[in-house]
Simulated scan of single mutants.
Amino acid sequence: MSKQPSFQKLQYDFAAHLRNPAQVPAPGGVEDRRLQIYRDLFYNNIEGFISGGFPVLRSLTSDEKWHRMVRDFFARYRCNTPYFLEISQEFLAYLQQQRQPEQDDLPFMIELAHYEWLELAADTDADSIPSSGFNPQGNLMQGRPLVSPLAYVVSYQYPVHRISADYLPTEQPQVATFLIVYRDRQDEVRFMEINAVTAKLLLLLEEHTDFSGADAVNAVASELPHLDRELVYNGGEQALQSLRQSGIILGTELKQVKV
């Protein structure tokens, strides 16, 4: 069995030390002053990207706890992507899957992290809003509403879009929060708070690619037999119109003509 080349072993030892300098000794023959430059450079780069991706979570976390989390992520988590823009996604995965919860964790920490990551994901999404292939003034009930590819419907147990140093809920609200996070035509990331019915309406349009607006609204109404059907129908139509005014619904899809 061939031995690992000495220069390659030095690289592995060097990388392992940079990841976890507290537990992995530095390779021999390198001045510690020089090593410190690399230790600071690598860690500060990673920490800077994470802080920039989760500004609210960072502001609500003590310095000691924050750096302990980032250090643990840097030392133990194995990223699946080499791209700097996706470090936030990897840190979110670390929080969700690998990090052990602590007693003083904010109860909404994971949800807040997901919301902040989603804002960044919407901002950097390589997709774009189409300029053709739909009728912006089409009848949303008779036609097939076209939802922007840069709109994301999510639900949270906590109102994460309102959380700040001045609003820190300690108990989970009885009613979930439904949001649409989206990027508009001016490339501004925005959010809209919606109710559960509107969220269900959009989910049905995503699941059933042949549904018209009326089909989706009627499907929602059938799931709410205790409510007046006409009231639900009118409310659904108003919701679709409101989503179009906000740019979340672009219009109605143009039917493809078979040749």
Rank of each mutant, 00 (worst) to 15 (best):
Y38M: 07
Y167N: 10
Q23N: 09
R33K: 12
R33G: 11
D184T: 04
L57D: 11
V220N: 02
M1D: 08
E230P: 00
S131L: 09
D125T: 08
Y158I: 12
F91Y: 14
L85P: 04
I110Q: 13
R39S: 11
S62Y: 04
L120M: 01
E237G: 05
E193H: 03
Q186K: 04
N44I: 03
P130R: 04
A165N: 13
A75W: 05
L57M: 15
A216R: 08
A221D: 08
Q36M: 10
W66M: 09
L60D: 08
D210R: 13
V175C: 06
D127H: 11
Q100I: 11
H67W: 06
G247I: 00
K200N: 13
D166W: 00
L231T: 10
I249W: 05
V197C: 10
R39M: 10
S131G: 15
P145N: 11
G52D: 04
H161G: 08
Y38H: 02
K9V: 07
E102A: 14
Y182Q: 05
D63M: 10
H17T: 10
L35M: 13
G213V: 07
P225K: 05
L243V: 15
C79H: 07
G138R: 15
Y167H: 04
L227G: 00
L203A: 06
L35I: 14
S6W: 02
Q98V: 11
A176F: 06
I37Q: 10
R99A: 01
Y158K: 08
K9F: 09
P159W: 10
P25D: 00
A196Y: 08
F14W: 03
L106P: 08
N20I: 05
E31N: 15
R58K: 12
V24W: 01
L10F: 03
R68W: 09
N80Y: 09
E90T: 06
K3Q: 08
F49A: 15
D215Y: 09
Q256C: 00
L118I: 02
L205H: 12
D127R: 14
E237D: 14
V217W: 04
G133R: 02
A165V: 01
E223T: 03
A122Y: 02
A199H: 14
S88W: 03
Q89P: 02
S2Y: 05
L150I: 06
F191P: 00
Y115S: 05
L179I: 04
P101T: 00
E64T: 08
G138A: 09
D184S: 01
D228S: 09
E31Q: 15
Y43K: 12
P25M: 00
I249Y: 04
P25H: 05
T177Y: 12
F178E: 05
G143A: 13
I46S: 07
A26G: 14
L95K: 03
L224D: 01
N139C: 10
E171I: 02
D72T: 14
L106Y: 07
